[in-house]
């Protein structure tokens, strides 16, 4: 009998910049996907040894556990200020912040706006899941109108709590920003697009083009009280209409770049 031996070929493995550890994120959460994409980009661009990440406060407070690079841990909302301090002293290093929507849009609004306005040459990974995850599901400035959270139990009432804030659109208006886009992590095609956007954001930084930010629409099955699958559908059907995907600022040098 003739046998055919098929040589195993590794086609998918953990990026070197991603730590080999157990996750603390809830089952079905897209933080893990976002982490992996960032780690893949660090690998591809060979940045791991010169990168300093800046963790924020929220579920991503532990993001430093998942990357094989130096990290600092910022106070709530202050990651862009801390990243400014790191990058100004180490201009040849790669610096990125990893922030959620409570951190970046609420308490850290001042720091993110001014870092972008100054054209600070670092990259912001902005994970928007429209809720405070770590503290157990309170309303965020990005929560959708009518969204039920533990601090808007009758649904977000825009009359008293205001309207969702579209950060990418706002920051794209600042001259210091070089690359500002919104992507989503709800399906494979969009995950691939998110990866490409992250690559371009880090490319912008490596070229010294100034502030870059990728907003990633993400889920929170636990605090949205949904199955993981339903939460991805929620992103597609409910979040994208409020937070349209797109490129809000791509400076010409970057637009010509093929990755």
């Amino acid at each position: 009998m003739e046998s055919t031996i098929i040589e195993p070929e590794i086609i998918y493995e953990r990026p070197e910049a991603l730590a080999d550890t157990v996750t603390h994120y809830c089952p079905g959460c897209t933080h893990g996907t976002a982490h992996r994409l960032v780690a893949e980009v660090l690998d591809e661009m060979g940045l791991q040894e010169k990168t300093v990440g800046v963790a924020s406060v929220g579920c991503s407070v532990f993001s430093y556990n998942y990357f094989e690079c130096d990290f600092v841990e910022a106070p709530h909302g202050r990651a862009p200020a801390m990243a400014t301090g790191v990058k100004r002293v180490l201009p040849d290093h790669t610096v990125f912040t990893y922030q959620g929507d409570g951190d970046l849009v609420s308490i850290g609004m001042g720091e993110i706006m001014h870092a972008a306005a100054r054209g600070e040459n670092f990259t912001v990974v902005f994970v928007n899941n429209a809720i405070y995850g770590m503290t157990g599901g309170q309303m965020a400035p990005t929560s959708l109108p009518g969204m039920v959270t533990t601090s808007s139990p009758l649904g977000r009432d825009v009359e008293t709590t205001g309207f969702p804030i579209r950060m990418s659109e706002i920051i794209a208006n600042l001259d210091g920003a070089s690359y500002v886009v919104r992507r989503s992590l709800h399906d494979a095609a969009n995950v691939r697009k998110s990866k490409k956007a992250l690559r371009l954001a880090f490319e912008a930084q490596e070229r010294g083009l100034g502030f870059s930010m990728v907003e990633l629409l993400s889920n929170c099955p636990t605090n949205w009280s949904m199955t993981a699958k339903d939460s991805l559908t929620f992103i597609k059907e409910k979040m994208i209409p409020v937070y349209p995907l797109g490129d809000f600022k791509v400076i010409p040098t970057l637009a010509e770049l093929r990755v």
Binding site: V52, V54, V72, A74, R78, M82, T84, G85, V86, K87
Partner: peptide, 8 residues
Amino acid sequence: NMVYGAAC
């Protein structure tokens, strides 16, 4: 917080 980052 810039001081914090730079001091790190």
